[in-house]
Design a protein around this nucleic acid. Structure first.
Lengths: 228, 228
DNA sequence: TGTACATCAGTGAACGCGCGTTCACTGATGTAC
DNA sequence: TGTACATCAGTGAACGCGCGTTCACTGATGTAC
């Protein structure tokens, strides 16, 4: 490789533009054919370049995947910012579960959950799982997302005067699970069904207790009794 | 293709054995390298056959994937049966959340959740999502799993004298989500953390109300009030 | 501003490897007498 | 039980295609005077 990109060397705008187009095309092709099924040629074709341009910008296919992973972290920060703005605008006007559900959508796929975003997200996850060198970057990426999501949900909770009936981190994990199951329906041609997520939100929240940070309720004092 | 397998022709034991070994090897290789990254040659090598044997047993790679999907449905029925036996043996002796959590493990990966089973499950899901011809078989497979899981959890609920605080189907979906999030940690070298799932189970169940099938509790009558 | 030159960014032909698939073959298994 | 033959199941060499990667090149961009 003659002109590989160094550490923090200044990069021309032209170069950045090429890189960005290649990466955007890669997202599309990865979604359609999978990371392993996507050839460098098809990616370049989709971006309107030749393969030489690819190898002038990335050491190899793995480097592209890593760059995409890093880029999605950045994109996520942007999405989180936008989501926060929305939240502040809509707070108080919309029911709590709408706010939470929306925030999760935004953080999951940058905008509204769509087939391509969900596919590529799953694809990157699985690829990261297969390549041990990607475990650390990927879990860092996940950690960032969880942190941002927690922050936003905490804000919603406070705004609505609610708290979770189970430890906060566990609530977040459980909500993420419900969200990702709902999202995965999109992969098979069905619409996303947020009803279970909304029901869950209702079921695991309660009005905030006046004294801050009381002890965790125990197994049975925590149970509601028969409603009649 | 000279000797392709017909519809329901009698198949020799030798042939069945070869097919089974190829499929078992495929599971391993799919987990390691992904469906698209797995070459027919490597699969055959792992099974101890040459590539000719592969094409004598499967029309092509796609046919193998379909066969694996059908086989996992069968395997799931077996796992469900075993799980049911366990349930009956342990019922009453073990806490409700242990029973549910165990049943979900069994149905998710046939036995205890292990890296290979989780990987191959995700891999098949994503591959099915990419190939529209596999949507129907795959959603059928998922539907079967959900039905079996529902049956077993219903049984646990009755045995423990509990009911869900949200509609049954939604509770199942939410539990599935929590379980699959917990499982996915295995992919990145961490241990499975079932605490959130257990907390969730506690949070969304309550003692069964004496009068069967009362109306769904509404948004706020359903909320617990401050515990002091 | 204009010219001469240097560097950069992307081109496109070429490479060789590995893949999916085919097929003439051989040894194993089954069948008839 | 033994022999002769037919069918079956898997072998392994061969095919051609498409892939990842390289590299001598050219036109575009930037710089010095």
């Amino acid at each position: 490789v003659v002109q590989q990109v160094g550490e923090d060397q200044p990069v021309s705008a032209r170069r950045t533009h090429t890189r960005d187009r290649l990466m955007a095309a890669a997202l599309q092709v990865f979604a359609e054919r999978g990371v392993l099924g996507a050839s460098v040629e098809v990616i370049c074709e989709a971006a309107g370049f030749t393969r030489g341009a690819f190898y002038s910008n990335f050491a190899d296919k793995d480097a592209l995947v890593l760059a995409l992973l890093q880029a999605s972290t950045t994109a996520q920060f942007a999405a989180a910012e936008r989501s926060l703005d929305e939240l502040q605008a809509a707070s108080g006007e919309q029911p709590f579960e709408d706010l939470v559900s929306r925030a999760m959508d935004r953080l999951g796929s940058g905008d509204q959950p769509n087939r391509q975003a969900v596919l590529v997200q799953q694809e990157l996850m699985l690829h990261a799982a297969r390549v041990p060198a990607l475990w650390a970057p990927y879990t860092a990426f996940l950690g960032t997302r969880t942190r941002q999501l927690s922050e936003q949900i905490e804000r919603c909770l406070v705004g609505a005067g609610l708290e979770f009936v189970l430890p906060f981190d566990q609530a977040i994990e459980v909500l993420s699970g419900a969200h990702s199951i709902a999202q995965s329906r999109i992969l098979f041609g069905a619409a996303m069904n947020t009803t279970p997520l909304r029901s869950l939100i209702l079921a695991i929240t309660r009005p905030r207790s006046p004294m801050a940070g009381g002890p965790e309720p125990s197994r049975f004092t925590d149970r509601r009794l028969d409603p009649c």
